[in-house]
Nucleic acid binder design. Structure first.
Length: 361
DNA sequence: AATATTTGACCCAG
DNA sequence: CTGGGTCAAATATT
């Protein structure tokens, strides 16, 4: 029963998310076109409702969500991710906890997860219009049952140097080969992953513009990669240029920001970093042909809201993907799990966030 | 030489 | 036992 509820909650949330995404798109259209203030207001309200619904849903679940406060500085206190870490009253777990048996796997399991759906047009590919701001290193590829294309696995280039455990996997869509599902896991704790954010004390934390900042730099680099990849693809027809070219250096924008989530409760000597980076980076805005909603991410700014900024993310089942992907317009929906208090929303009706989140197991 | 990718082997949860 | 995810030796790039 526990699981069942989770599942249902997952799909429920998916629906809400979808609705919210659609509302956002609608808003965009209204913006571009001539819109009345009343119209904007309506859309805003609709979005607000979705947001609240999502939050309520999450709170209805007696899980972690504890208090955002204390976690902030905790290196290992780790606000147990919403995952059912403790959910399983198995005694073994307890026992094993003591022994630091490479709980690495355990650690990974707890990492937040969310999926993005990105459409890549040959043009954008050539232009190198994308990149989520991080550098990834491919560490594996696997043919997935039933899937037409292989899945590629990437991990942060700085895993070892900075103990950054973020990873992502890229799966080309069967139906629409121009779409890639990118599943991210874990938050980047590395620092220069995203060149944009210059050392200067985050000056632009105030709002929307940081968007542009990131975009530039990497693009060029990126394009090179892409070209070389394409070349490879051309000569290595073995697999039919499918995956590799693209999968290889791709990263996209939409990803939103970092989540906080502290997953390294165990050894990680640098656990300290966690806090800072929480949202250190925003992926590039990504001006996709159909993605006008580039600038939102208002919520991304942690400080903007007092909450410690703890977010955790993950998407539950695969169902979600489908639902989300439904809307082509290149909208991505990073999923976030906002952990701040509900009040926040109430106080600030304009508050909006692109993401949504929920948990799963 | 240093770093990144390719790939089959290996691990483990279901 | 099977499939998904990761490791790591062999290669390929830079």
């Amino acid at each position: 029963m526990e699981h069942r509820w989770k599942r249902e909650q997952g799909t429920l949330i998916s629906e809400l998310i979808q609705g919210m995404e659609l509302a956002k798109q609608l808003r965009v259209h209204l913006d571009t076109a001539s819109s009345t203030e009343s119209m904007d207001l309506l859309v805003q309200k609709i979005l607000s409702s979705y947001e609240k619904a999502l939050l309520i849903l999450q709170f209805s679940r007696p899980m972690s969500m504890g208090q955002p406060q204390q976690n902030v500085g905790a290196t290992s206190g780790v606000p147990e991710s919403p995952l059912s870490i403790n959910g399983s009253p198995r005694s073994d777990d307890l026992d094993k906890d003591n022994q630091d048996i490479r709980d690495v796997s355990k650690k990974r399991k707890m990492l937040p997860r969310w999926t993005d759906h990105v459409r890549v047009t040959s043009e954008s590919l050539l232009e190198g219009t994308h990149d989520d701001g991080y550098s990834w290193r491919k560490y594996g590829q696997k043919d997935i049952l039933g899937a037409k294309y292989p899945r590629s696995y990437y991990r942060c280039t700085y895993r070892h140097t900075q103990d950054c455990w973020a990873t992502k996997q890229v799966q080309r869509s069967d139906e629409d080969p121009t779409i890639f599902e990118i599943t991210y896991r874990g938050t980047h704790t590395c620092v220069h992953g995203n060149q944009p954010v210059p050392p200067p004390a985050s000056p632009e934390k105030q709002e929307y513009k940081l968007t542009n900042l990131n975009t530039n730099n990497n693009q060029q680099l990126q394009s090179q990669d892409i070209l070389s990849n394409l070349r490879k693809g051309l000569r290595v027809n073995t697999e039919g240029l499918d995956n590799k070219e693209m999968a290889t250096s791709f990263s996209f924008p939409s990803t939103s920001f970092g989540w906080l989530k502290t997953e390294n409760n165990s050894f990680s000597p640098s656990g300290v970093l966690d806090n800072n980076n929480i949202l250190n980076s925003f992926p590039s805005p990504f001006t996709s042909p159909a993605t006008p909603e580039v600038n939102y991410f208002s919520a991304s700014q942690p400080q903007m809201n007092s909450f410690g900024g703890m977010l955790s993310t993950q998407n539950s089942e695969p169902d979600l993907k489908e639902l989300i992907s439904a809307n082509t317009s290149a909208t991505n929906s990073p999923i976030i799990d906002l952990d701040f208090s509900l009040d926040q929303v109430e106080l600030d009706p304009n508050f909006q966030f692109d993401t949504q989140g929920f948990f799963s197991s």
